[in-house]
Deep mutational scan, measured.
Amino acid sequence: DVEPGKFYKGVVTRIEKYGAFINLNEQVRGLLRPRDMISLRLENLNVGDEIIVQAIDVRPEKREIDFKYIP
């Protein structure tokens, strides 16, 4: 289970104008929005990159997770 405030290693699987989709595993995916990136820009991410993200909002009923990147 993903818990708000905890850090997780994930893989960038898709990049859109509104953010990057990060997979923690095959069943768990969330969104990293540009506003939640500190010292990292969306255009510097590539599909396949491994990054450490912090879960900031977890909505299991909608199967949605918002992430934050903190270097």
Rank of each mutant, 00 (worst) to 15 (best):
E16I: 08
N23E: 12
K17C: 09
R59K: 07
R29T: 12
E61P: 07
P34L: 11
V58Y: 10
K62P: 06
F67T: 02
I22Q: 01
I56Y: 14
N46S: 15
N44R: 08
P4F: 09
V11S: 07
D1F: 15
R41S: 14
G48Y: 06
D1H: 15
R33C: 03
E61C: 07
V53H: 00
P60V: 12
R14T: 07
P4M: 13
N25H: 09
D66M: 09
P71Y: 06
E43Y: 10
I51G: 00
E61A: 12
A20V: 10
D49P: 01
N23R: 12
S39K: 13
V11M: 11
K62D: 09
I65D: 02
P4V: 15
G5F: 10
D57M: 13
I70M: 12
P71I: 07
L24Y: 02
D57L: 11
N23F: 09
E50D: 12
V11Y: 14
L40Y: 04
R35S: 10
N46P: 01
K17Y: 14
L24A: 01
N23I: 07
Q54L: 15
R29C: 09
R29F: 12
E43T: 11
E3L: 14
E26S: 15
P34D: 07
G19A: 07
D49L: 07
V47I: 14
R59T: 05
E16S: 11
G5H: 07
Q27E: 13
G10I: 03
E26K: 15
L24I: 13
D36Q: 07
I70C: 08
L42P: 05
E16W: 11
V58E: 03
Y18D: 06
R35C: 07
R41L: 13
N23Q: 13
K62M: 12
R14W: 08
E64S: 08
I22F: 03
L32P: 01
L31K: 03
Q54A: 07
G19R: 04
V47K: 05
N23Y: 11
V12E: 00
G48P: 01
I70S: 11
I56H: 08
I65P: 02
L32N: 01
F67I: 03
I70H: 10
V47N: 04
P4W: 08
L40I: 12
S39G: 15
G19N: 01
L40P: 02
K68I: 08
D49S: 06
E16D: 08
D1A: 15
A55L: 06
I51W: 01
Y8F: 05
E3K: 15
R35Q: 12
N25K: 06
G48N: 07
R41F: 10
E50P: 12
R29D: 06
Y8C: 02
V58P: 05
D66Y: 14
L40T: 07
V28N: 07
G48C: 06
E43D: 13
V12I: 13
A55Q: 02
G30Q: 01
I52A: 04
Q27D: 13
K68W: 04
G19L: 03
P34N: 08
K68E: 05
G30I: 04
F67C: 03
L31G: 01
V12C: 03
Y8N: 00
D66E: 06
E16H: 10
I70G: 07
E26H: 15
V58M: 06
E43G: 10
D66S: 10
I22R: 00
A55K: 03
G19S: 02
F67L: 11
P34M: 09
L32S: 01
P4C: 10
R35D: 09
I15V: 11
M37R: 01
D57P: 03
R63T: 08
G10V: 05
P60M: 10
G30R: 02
N46E: 13
F21H: 07
L45Y: 02
G19H: 03
Q27F: 15
R33V: 04
K6E: 09
E3H: 14
E16C: 09
D1G: 15
I15W: 03
K62A: 11
V28L: 14
E26R: 15
E3R: 12
I15K: 07
G19T: 02
P60Q: 10
T13L: 05
Y18C: 05
G19Q: 03
P60Y: 10
I52Y: 10
G19Y: 06
Q27W: 15
R41D: 10
D57V: 13
S39M: 13
R35H: 10
R14S: 11
L42C: 03
G5I: 03
S39Y: 13
A20N: 00
K9G: 05
K17D: 11
G19C: 03
R33F: 03
G19V: 05
P71T: 08
G10L: 04
E43N: 11
E64V: 10
E43K: 12
T13G: 07
L42V: 07
R14L: 09
L42M: 08
K68Q: 11
I22T: 00
A55D: 00
V58I: 10
A55F: 04
F7Q: 06
L45G: 00
T13K: 07
F7S: 12
V47A: 05
F7W: 13
Q54W: 11
E61F: 07
E64M: 12
